[in-house]
């Protein structure tokens, strides 16, 4: 689209947008700044954006008071396993729903679609009771169980498979004598790298940010995730602002780094779920 507007309007526009950017970024800068300050400077008035004395002491203290490395590894393991399972289950179910006919198919598909809008908060109590029955409370299985599947992922993969994989291709592979499982792994799956990447990013981000489920299903800190660990840490050490902000930085930093490298893919991955297919 061409710019029709006069120069002063363009300056005003960029001025507004830049002001917005400052508001978006300032909390992160403030977090970083606080995490690098010595205690006396954290509580100084007027607040200083750039610390006078830089210190890494807060980061040391975070690792001393709480096992943040453990939290980080827990989050990572949980998110990776969840992402792999969601990709696998979504692709398989999407493929079966999209390319095969079997009795009960429509019923099952509608059921999948209908539950996609029900949030975990609605059914977390019975889910927790099931975990109690299986003795999965405060275990890794219990932690990751709700994140092994994503209704929306199934729907999303089905749309992509129906749009991008022709039936003729599958029939050709069948005539060549390929078994169904082989067709799925060697013909179908490789053609879905684009949508798989987008779904993977969305799944990973969703599991990484999980809070209420880890909060209720874990009871000892060796199973806490980064999010929960930080939430509990700030709950108990609420006056130590330096270490708390250092802990926040540790939780934000990996996400920011990955985001800056994969910006386009991530934006697509996270908004795709909002868009029509």
């Amino acid at each position: 689209m061409k710019e029709y507007s006069p120069i002063w309007l363009r300056i005003l526009k960029h001025g507004l947008l830049l002001l917005g950017c400052v508001i978006m970024v300032l909390p992160f800068i403030w977090m970083l700044s606080t995490s690098l300050k010595i205690p006396s400077e954290v509580l100084s008035w007027p607040p200083q954006l750039i610390p006078k004395t830089f210190t890494m002491q807060n980061y040391v203290e975070v690792f001393e008071t709480a096992p943040f490395l453990k939290f980080f590894l827990n989050s990572l393991t949980m998110s990776v396993i969840s992402t792999i399972c969601i990709l696998l289950t979504s692709t398989i179910a999407g493929y079966v729903f999209g390319k095969f006919n079997f009795p009960g198919k429509n019923f099952l598909f509608v059921l999948t679609l209908a539950t996609s809008m029900v949030p975990l908060e609605v059914y977390m109590i019975p889910l927790y009771m099931q975990m109690v029955k299986l003795s999965w409370v405060n275990t890794f299985m219990g932690l990751v169980a709700p994140y092994l599947i994503m209704s929306y992922g199934i729907f999303f993969m089905r749309q992509n498979i129906m749009a991008s994989i022709p039936d003729d291709l599958l029939d050709a592979a069948r005539i060549d004598g390929a078994g169904e499982a082989r067709i799925f792994f060697t013909v179908v799956a490789p053609m879905l790298s684009g949508p798989s990447g987008a779904l993977a990013i969305f799944a990973f981000q969703q599991t990484w940010a999980a809070f209420i489920w880890p909060l209720i299903v874990t009871s000892t800190r060796d199973l806490w995730t980064m999010e929960l660990g930080l939430g509990m840490f700030q709950y108990r050490f609420t006056v130590d602002l330096g270490p708390i902000n250092a802990g926040s930085m540790l939780s934000v930093l990996p996400v920011l780094i990955v985001f800056l490298f994969l910006r386009k893919k991530i934006v697509r991955g996270i908004t795709l779920t909002g868009m029509k297919s």
Binding site: G20, C21, M24, V25, P27, F28, W30, M31, T34, Q205, W208, A209, F211, M226, E227, L228, L230, G231, Q234, I244, N245, G247, S248, M249, S251, V252, V255, L256, F259, R263, I266, V267, I270
Partner: peptide
């Protein structure tokens, strides 16, 4: 503008 969207909720709530 997308930065806060991808960051997890707990650290930003803390700050």
């Amino acid at each position: 503008y997308f930065l806060p969207v991808i960051t997890p909720m707990v650290p930003v709530a803390v700050v």
